[in-house]
Nucleic acid binder design. Structure first.
Length: 479
RNA sequence: GUCCCGUUCGUCUAGUGGCCUAGGACUCAGGAUUUUCAUUCCUGCAACAGGGGUUCAAUUCCCCUACGGGAUGCCA
């Protein structure tokens, strides 16, 4: 039981789910699935100044729509709750007091203003900007006095100042950090809430987390955490620090340089399947050369050992390619459901289910992002609008001959079928002597508005007999 | 500045002391298929950061340099 794999995704509710966080969540999820372990969701909402209304709901919804289901966490519960850190303050407080008793932490009465001033002076003097530890030297009486006066305080970690700490990370292997370079970290803020460093350690232990899989930005904080595990006499989880996701200019992936919110990608018409597949490949690669993975397949193939060490640029081109692949290969019915909101938003009438499915089938092959589907299928809903060049082609003798031929013959046809259309196509060649581009371009232009596009029978099939005839009559004796 | 981490085609990556003339994918270019477009298929372009070691042999191991990134918050 104690060997059970338990991993957690511990986001702070910032208002949206960052794609980097999505990758972290995915790797945690995959590792849990792969090992038959548990995937826990914990909300790290300890920063009251950053509280955002609705952020948690949004996070939960995004996670749900992307398809990463957790085993324990908010809404779902579990044996180790609550899963919101803001509801666990009493727990942190208790452990913080224990640290003070053990002389592993101390009260600090420095105000943010004081600290800011100190930092500025240090920078001005060209020395390292770091806490000068003045409160670490406070006597028992001074502390008692300050406390009695009700002076605001924080609790800081009382870190060793000599030697170095060595730990092993699953992706970085051996990491050594000298104690003298790490600041006495604030554990409890003056508002009584814990900082990440305290809450994270306590929760990971209490929730029996076996592996910490998180972004590389935490690597240099590990000593602060390991110190706490040591003082409490707890066994630290295995560490696994993921390489960062990067902007094209190689800086840490951020807003500004494009979308980073998963919900924005979803809204733009990227499929969860594609997003997950793409993001999985950013920092992980299987032994094989395969690039296309369903979630199920990832669950089987994933391994922490094959995570790369260096940061990965988020390449939208590749995402587009993967998304296009899923758009083309997934069930048409599924794509139809996903596409529906875009059509509704565009105000197109898709009440004819049969016709709608045909449109989906034609359109999904020619886009890489679902939000483009209305643009590509617009000609099915809106009559063509011709420019000067189009008009020239329409007014050509051949074109007009074609149009009247089709206009007359189509009227005679009972029900439109691919067969009937193909038959007419053939007769156009035989009876009018028009073939190839001379045949298809004018027709497609008249019915679809552009000379390029879907197969001709498909166009007529979707438009239907009446609409086709109507569009033909529009270009007949065109001025 | 300091500490930590990293460095294979433009991008994501495979790779190992000899199998590397460094493999795959995206992008790009060319070609084939298609009435056209898209798809698909084929071909091509393109990389071991630099310098020292170690070794019979280094892209692979070690050191240095350079470059990049992260951390350095009462943010996470």
């Amino acid at each position: 039981m104690s060997n059970e794999i338990r991993v957690r995704f511990a986001p702070s509710p910032t208002g949206y789910l960052h794609v980097g966080s999505l990758r972290t969540a995915l790797y945690n999820y995959l590792y849990a699935k792969k090992t038959g372990g548990k995937f826990i969701l914990r909300i790290e909402d300890t920063d009251q100044t950053r509280y955002i209304e609705g952020a948690v709901e949004n996070l939960l919804n995004t996670l749900k729509s992307i398809g990463l289901e957790y085993d324990e966490g908010p809404e779902k519960g579990g044996d180790y709750g609550p899963y919101f850190q803001s509801q666990r303050t009493a727990i942190y407080r208790k452990y913080a007091n224990e640290l003070i008793e053990k002389d592993a932490a101390y009260y600090c009465f420095c105000t943010p203003e004081q600290l800011e001033k100190m930092r500025k002076e240090q920078i001005a003097r060209g020395i390292d900007a770091r806490y000068d530890e003045r409160c670490r030297k406070l006597s028992k009486d001074e502390i008692k006095e300050n406390l009695a006066k009700g002076k605001p305080y924080v609790i800081r970690e009382k870190l060793p100042k000599e030697g170095e700490i060595v730990f092993y990370d699953i992706v970085r292997d051996r990491v050594a950090i000298k104690w003298e370079t790490v600041d006495d970290q604030v554990l409890i803020k003056s508002d009584g809430f814990p900082t990440y460093h305290l809450a994270n350690v306590i929760d990971d232990h209490l929730m029996k987390i076996s592996h910490i899989i998180r972004g590389e930005e935490w690597l240099s904080s590990v000593p602060k955490h390991l110190f706490l595990y040591n003082v409490f006499g707890w066994k630290p989880p295995k560490m696994c620090h993921l390489p960062l996701l990067l902007n094209p200019d190689k800086s840490k992936l951020s807003k500004r340089q494009g979308d980073v919110a998963v919900e924005d990608f979803l809204a733009k018409g990227y499929l969860p399947e594609a997003l997950l597949n793409f993001v999985a490949l950013l920092g992980w690669h299987s032994k094989s050369d395969e690039e296309l993975y369903t979630l199920e397949k990832l669950e089987q193939e994933f391994s922490l050992k094959r995570i790369s060490k260096s940061g990965a640029v988020f390449d939208i081109e590749k995402l587009n390619w993967i998304n296009g692949h899923y758009l083309r290969s997934l069930e048409p019915g599924y794509i139809a459901i996903k596409a529906r909101p875009y059509f509704i938003k565009a105000g197109y009438d898709i009440s004819n289910e049969e016709q709608y499915l045909k449109i989906i089938d034609v359109a999904r092959n020619r886009i890489s992002v679902l939000s483009d589907i209305t643009k590509i299928s617009k000609p099915f809903f809106i009559e063509p609008d011709f420019n000067e060049e189009d008009k020239m082609l329409i007014n050509e003798e051949n074109s007009q001959k074609l149009y009247s031929f089709w206009f007359e013959n189509l009227k005679e046809i009972e029900t439109i079928s691919d067969e009937a259309v193909n038959n007419l196509l053939q007769r156009s060649t035989e009876e009018l002597g028009i073939k190839g581009k001379d045949l298809y371009f004018p027709l497609r232009l008249a019915l679809f508005g552009i000379v390029h596009g879907p197969e001709f029978p498909a166009i007529i099939n979707i438009l239907g007999k009446d609409e086709t005839i109507k569009r033909l009559s529009n270009v007949l004796d065109f001025e």
